[in-house]
Nucleic acid binder design. Structure first.
Lengths: 120, 120
DNA sequence: ATCCTAAATTAGTTATGGCTAATATTAGAC
DNA sequence: GTCTAATATTAGCCATAACTAATTTAGGAT
């Protein structure tokens, strides 16, 4: 199943949001998601399995419990796809691109300062 | 329909890839996509409509033809969602984040230089 | 060994997304 | 006006993703 199909489901996005805050046991995920979406333990378990097999989550056993975390792999895949289009939003990526612009200006000024005592 | 559901479909991703190269008429899209996926004009038209209503494409009429282009809106939405997880892959966003890091370093050095003649 | 809790798995049902086929719209040429 | 080309729209069919209910597996306690 393709990365975007995985993220297409609101329950799976919610699970990832939760895991983004840190490792969670399957039970904790069931409780949180159940509260929000009212679905069964089975359903959540199936989602967790899919997140794992599609590279969005990792699991480690802890006794009888299973602890899940975010796996960046799948998200990076998504990010890589979106990359192709980044140039379309004005070579300006809000806060991020502002930082870059400022950084470049700062660098330029610094480098010019090295060669020439008179910056613009 | 949610942005990720839109990108979940391989045909729609293919269309966006095509539009990323530049504006295309509906007919051109039908031909390109038809060749790759073997689906009808109707199917492609339905996909184009969805891309439009979900903020991934814009359309402008040109006589009887309709010219489609990528609309960054939907992609930005996706990008914003992924943002929450970026810190997970090493606070390193390939070229982009490298730029930021360099920029911050440059700024820091420059500012320190103003107050104190001895940079680290 | 028995029991309980945590979680996964399986089988079966249902809702929906994506398709085709047919039809409708619109623009331009004649 | 009629005809054709380009595209959109509608209705209906089908495949499948997501769910529930029931069962199974496994760990830890008594």
């Amino acid at each position: 199943m393709h990365a975007f199909d995985v993220l297409g489901d609101p329950v799976r996005r919610h699970i990832l949001d939760l895991l983004a805050e840190g490792e969670r046991s399957a039970g904790e995920v069931v409780e949180a998601v159940g509260a929000e979406f009212g679905i069964s333990q089975s359903a959540v378990s199936q989602h967790l399995a899919m997140l794992r097999t599609s590279g969005f989550a990792t699991m480690r056993p802890d006794g009888a419990r299973r602890l899940y975390s975010v796996d960046p792999t799948g998200l990076q895949e998504v990010d890589a796809w979106v990359d192709r289009f980044r140039h379309l939003w004005g070579a300006r990526l809000s806060a991020l691109e502002t930082e870059i612009a400022r950084g470049k200006r700062a660098q330029r000024q610094q480098e010019e300062g090295k060669n020439n005592e008179r910056p613009d």
